[in-house]
């Protein structure tokens, strides 16, 4: 639509938009997170949802206690190997379109427990992460920033074409294999579809 005509119409009290814009406006302003926390980052997540930081301004105050009603998984805290299958299972149970924010050093890389034997070295070994937040723990402002980043990404998605939203695409995986408890480690140790080991710069 012509921008001049749109401006002219809005002066007369007529609001015009595209179906795509309306669709994304609704989607990005009602992203309901799944209510679960894994470690100390969850405290910051709770603080973000309360009055002082007020995640409600972004339409995300409705923390859903059921994965069937949630759009966003905030992985807030250390993912131990014992907990990882349950986190993947919760993600699988969420309906499309669904998004993942990995919050804090532990969720993105294992953090201070990276060299331990029982902590997953980043949830992106099993799940497709949309936004990573560094910090130990990240401040509520950082979570809000990640949330706004996710909103911008949702806004940039279109109804048709290669940049379709997740629920309109058939080529994206909605479910990911749940890792099994092995004798020494989780099996498989990572999902090659979501994660490949980083190549060291010096070995090339």
């Amino acid at each position: 639509m012509d921008e001049g005509l749109r401006g002219e119409l809005s002066k007369h009290g007529v609001f015009t938009t595209t179906l795509e814009g309306l669709h994304n406006w609704g989607r990005r302003n009602s992203v309901w997170p799944l209510q679960f926390g894994l470690a100390c980052c969850a405290i910051e997540m709770i603080a973000t949802s309360m009055a002082r930081y007020d995640l409600a301004r972004f339409g995300a105050e409705v923390f859903r206690p059921s994965p069937r009603q949630a759009d966003l998984m905030i992985v807030a805290g250390t993912v131990t190997k014992k907990m990882a299958p349950q986190v993947v299972r919760l993600y699988n149970q969420m309906p499309e379109p669904k998004y993942v924010i990995a919050m804090g050093a532990c969720a993105i890389s294992g953090g201070p427990f990276k060299q331990g034997y029982n902590v997953l070295k980043g949830i992106d070994r099993y799940l497709p992460v949309d936004v990573h937040i560094p910090g130990c723990p990240p401040r509520p402002e950082a979570l809000i920033h990640a949330f706004m980043t996710l909103q911008r990404r949702i806004d940039a998605q279109s109804l048709t074409g290669p940049n379709r939203a997740r629920h309109l695409r058939s080529d994206v995986d909605s479910e990911f294999p749940v890792p099994q408890f092995g004798a020494h480690d989780l099996h498989p140790p990572s999902n090659p579809k979501t994660w490949t080991p980083p190549q060291s710069v010096r070995s090339q």
Partner: peptide
Amino acid sequence: DYEYEPTPHGPVLERANAHQT
């Protein structure tokens, strides 16, 4: 399953090479 940093050196580089490439 250790994930090596992109610019390791010394013995860590050797381990990373054996691991990654």
